Computed example of a mutant assay.
Amino acid sequence: MIAQVTGSLATKELDRVEIMTAGGVAYECLIPLSVYEGLPAEGQAVTLHTHLSVREDAWHLYGFAHPYERAVFQKLLGAKGVGPALALGILSALTPDRVVRALREKDVTTLMRVPRVGRKKAEQIILDLADKIDTVGRGPVAGAAPANPVADDAIRALIALGYNQAEADRAVRTVMDSGAGGDVSVVVRAALGKLTGK
C-alpha cells in the first residue's frame, strides 16, 4: 500500500501530476480539480496522501491534499456503481465537506450537480453511504466550508450563475475569512471578484 508520496512536483495537469521522489522514482497520481488548484509551482516540494487502485489491467495511484479528502474518496468507492473515476469526478465538483453533508442530509439535488450523476445514481449513492459516512471523521478546519446562512445562500447564488460547488465554496470561504459578511449580495459580489480576478 502506498499511502503517501513526497517529492518535487515534476509535472502537473488538471487531472494528474508526476512527483519525483528523493530516491529517483517518479509517481504519477490522478487528482481531483481541488488538488490541482492548490499545487505549488513545478519543481517545488509537494506531499500527496494516496490511494492505490489495483486492477488486472492497470494500477492507478490517486492523490489528495488531506487524509480526510482521501477518506471521503475511499468511502465513495463503497457505493454501488461508483468507481475511482466517478469518485474523483465527485470530488472535483464538490468539496469533501459538501459531499459528506449531502450524504448525511440525503441531498439528491446536490449530488446530481456532478457530471455523470443522475437522480438514480445519486439515490443509490445515498442509499449505500448515508448511514456509513460518519466514519470518515472531520475535515481540516482551515478547509471547512463556511457554516452560516449567508455563506450558504451566497454559494447557492454562485452555483446558479454557473460556477461549480467547489469553486463557489472556495470563493465564499475566502471572502468570509477576510471578515466580509452580513449581507448575501455583498458576499456574492466579493466572491465574484475572487473568481474573475477583478
Rank of each mutant, 00 (worst) to 15 (best):
L30K: 08
P149V: 06
R16I: 01
V25P: 05
G162W: 09
V46S: 05
T21N: 08
L76N: 13
V188H: 05
E69H: 09
A166Q: 06
V100D: 02
L76M: 08
A166T: 12
L9A: 00
E69A: 15
E123Y: 01
H51V: 11
A71W: 08
A154D: 04
E56A: 08
L39F: 00
A79P: 14
R173K: 12
T21P: 04
R113P: 09
R138T: 14
P84H: 07
P140M: 06
V114T: 04
A168S: 14
G89E: 04
E167Q: 12
L9H: 00
A144C: 11
I126E: 07
V17Y: 01
V5L: 00
E13F: 12
A102V: 03
A58M: 13
T50K: 04
V188S: 00
L94H: 06
T110G: 09
S53D: 14
G118E: 04
K121Y: 07
K75V: 14
E28K: 10
D128L: 06
P146V: 15
D177K: 02
A58F: 11
G38S: 10
V188W: 00
S178H: 04
H66T: 15
I159A: 10
L48E: 07
G43L: 03
A26H: 00
G81L: 12
L195R: 05
T21M: 00
M20P: 11
A87F: 07
G137D: 05
V25K: 04
E105H: 09
L61P: 03
L111W: 03
A26M: 12
L192S: 03
A157W: 10
H49P: 12
V25Y: 05
P67C: 01
D183G: 02
G181I: 03
V136N: 05
E18G: 09
S8Q: 13
I125A: 12
R104I: 15
D57W: 01
G78M: 12
L52K: 11
G78E: 14
V186M: 12
L103D: 06
L158D: 09
Q44R: 13
V150T: 13
I19K: 05
N164E: 01
K120F: 02
G78C: 09
I19H: 13
Y68D: 00
D177R: 07
P67R: 06
G24M: 00
A122H: 03
E123M: 11
R98P: 05
R104H: 13
A65N: 15
Y27A: 09
L158R: 01
G23Y: 08
V117H: 05
S53G: 10
K132M: 06
A168H: 08
L52R: 15
G7I: 04
M1W: 06
C29E: 08
V184E: 04
T11E: 14
G179F: 00
E105Q: 12
W59C: 14
G118V: 02
D134V: 04
L61V: 12
V172N: 13
L30C: 10
L103I: 07
V25E: 01
D131R: 12
Q4T: 10
A157H: 08
S92R: 09
K75L: 15
A41S: 11
L127F: 08
A102E: 10
G83L: 06
R98E: 14
C29A: 07
P40Y: 01
Y36E: 11
V136D: 03
